[in-house]
Design a protein around this nucleic acid. Sequence first.
DNA 1: CAGTATCCAGCACGATACTG
DNA 2: CAGTATCGTGCTGGATACTG
Lengths: 121, 121
Amino acid sequence: MQSRPTTTHPRYRNEFDATMQLIQGKWKIMIMYEIAETGTSRFADLQHHIREVSHKTLTNQLKELADDDLIERHDFQTAQPHVEYTLTAKGQSIIPLLDAICDWGDTHIDHAQIERSLCDE
Amino acid sequence: MQSRPTTTHPRYRNEFDATMQLIQGKWKIMIMYEIAETGTSRFADLQHHIREVSHKTLTNQLKELADDDLIERHDFQTAQPHVEYTLTAKGQSIIPLLDAICDWGDTHIDHAQIERSLCDE
DNA sequence: CAGTATCCAGCACGATACTG
DNA sequence: CAGTATCGTGCTGGATACTG
């Protein structure tokens, strides 16, 4: 029904809600982290580093991250499909925030309840 | 009362996941903010300040915040029910993080898409 | 006033299979 | 390799009604 998000009414209740919407997917942060670490990642790379994510969900979250302008999708248009993902400026600007989230968890949450550490790497 | 099973197998994938789980409810941040501003809030106060939240959901999220030791529930045990909520030390420690989330949204998200500003208050 | 119980809609995510 | 499409399930949160 509704076509474009041009002059649509607000999609977020407040700034917090807005930020949360962008990073709330089950694997979005890990995807961002992975791309940030390597500089650029292909679809298969992400699949290998984030073992538990399903194919479909990885696709979806990459699409949402791209739609929200946090990552950029480069399609090399070759015979053998070749797509690379990188962080946008906006995406890079949010990394320190993700670090802060990681650090708070590291400091205030019982390590016994945490499967695998991320921040300390 | 109800104490959750003391099974110690990890409930969180990593620190980020852990932190997110605590603040991920639709109204949790607004609840935290409201309590932080006033110092202490009653159930009805929260209902009045966060108009859109349903009764049941407010109850649930307060319970989860309390279970996660972010807020504390004081029951005055009087004839007329009287319960007050305050932030725990852990709860107060997360406020700067919430501010950071708010600030990032304020800086990087189009204000036209945001219904009501929270950070600037 | 504060909390519980029940039922229900939406959606996020997974499993699987198919495409170029 | 990268991406669709389809189907199913579990969880979150809303509506409503009842309790002390």
